[in-house]
């Protein structure tokens, strides 16, 4: 056991490097995925059949092909076509396109879930199409889409593990290195814990975003209230208010 922890202490700086790569991929991929999700999600609601068809086709293509193959394509095939991209860029591109295609469906569905009365009110106020979307519909759809987006974000974090196939030394790669000096159980155990902690932090952040988004729609407590620890006295006071 002693040697396990010694090996971990020795490998720790490299594991942190790997963690940094994993975080870059997750956050970069998430940002790109969000942009793609919004573009494709909005695009798949257009009246113009050509643009709508194009958006749907892109969505279906990236949802329907393997992420590993997409990464290989970006990393090994594109250079042959004269476009050599750094491994990190390939990783973010692959993750962003793949998960963006999934999340596009979430964006589209959430926008469609905003009550028709809201759209009608924007028409009655003569708002333009972009004002409708940006100022009224999207802010309401946003609160609806966060839980599903959280799911995809966690999926993506775990999905980053395959980038070691395209030479990136991420958390999983360095765990593998660690395993050579320690028990298999120990190395993978460390890795599980680190992934879990990051996933949990991301979930907490997304939950906070959801609380805030709902509060802005006049539903539920504010983030500050949600974060304030409830002592028996404040809880009682709250109960008293409600009663």
């Amino acid at each position: 056991m002693e040697s396990n922890f010694e090996a971990l202490a020795e490998a720790w700086p490299r594991i942190l490097d790997g963690l940094w790569i994993t975080l870059q991929l997750t956050l970069g991929g998430a940002l790109l995925a969000m942009v793609i999700a919004v573009v494709l999600g909005l695009g798949s609601r257009l009246h113009n059949i050509v643009l709508r068809g194009l958006c749907r086709a892109i969505m279906e293509f990236f949802r329907g092909t393997s992420l590993v193959v997409q990464l290989f394509f970006f990393f090994f095939v594109l250079p042959q076509l004269g476009l050599a991209l750094p491994a990190m860029v390939c990783g973010i591109l692959g993750l962003g396109l793949n998960y963006g295609a999934y999340a596009a469906e979430v964006v589209r569905g959430s926008i469609n879930s905003v009550p028709t009365g809201q759209w009608e009110a924007t028409t009655a106020l003569s708002m333009s199409k972009s004002q409708q979307m940006i100022r009224v519909i999207f802010p309401q759809a946003w609160a609806l889409m966060i839980p599903s987006l959280t799911n995809y974000l966690i999926h993506m974090l775990k999905g980053t593990a395959i980038v070691s196939f395209i030479t990136l030394a991420d958390l999983t790669y360095h765990t593998e290195q660690l395993r050579e000096q320690t028990d298999t159980f120990f190395a993978y155990g460390v890795s599980l814990v680190i992934y879990f902690v990051i996933a949990y932090i991301l979930t907490l952040i997304m939950n906070a975003l959801e609380v805030r988004a709902k509060h802005r729609l006049g539903r539920g407590e504010s983030l500050r209230e949600a974060l304030t620890p409830k002592t028996p006295e404040t809880a009682a006071a709250e109960g008293g208010r409600k009663a």
């Binding site: 009608e120 009110a121 009655a124 009224v136 539903r219």
Partner: peptide
């Protein structure tokens, strides 16, 4: 033309955001 017309709905349809 629409700008000159206003409407009040059965379900109010205020913007909750």
């Amino acid at each position: 033309i629409r700008k000159r017309i206003g409407m009040v709905f059965q379900q109010f349809n205020l913007f909750p955001n």
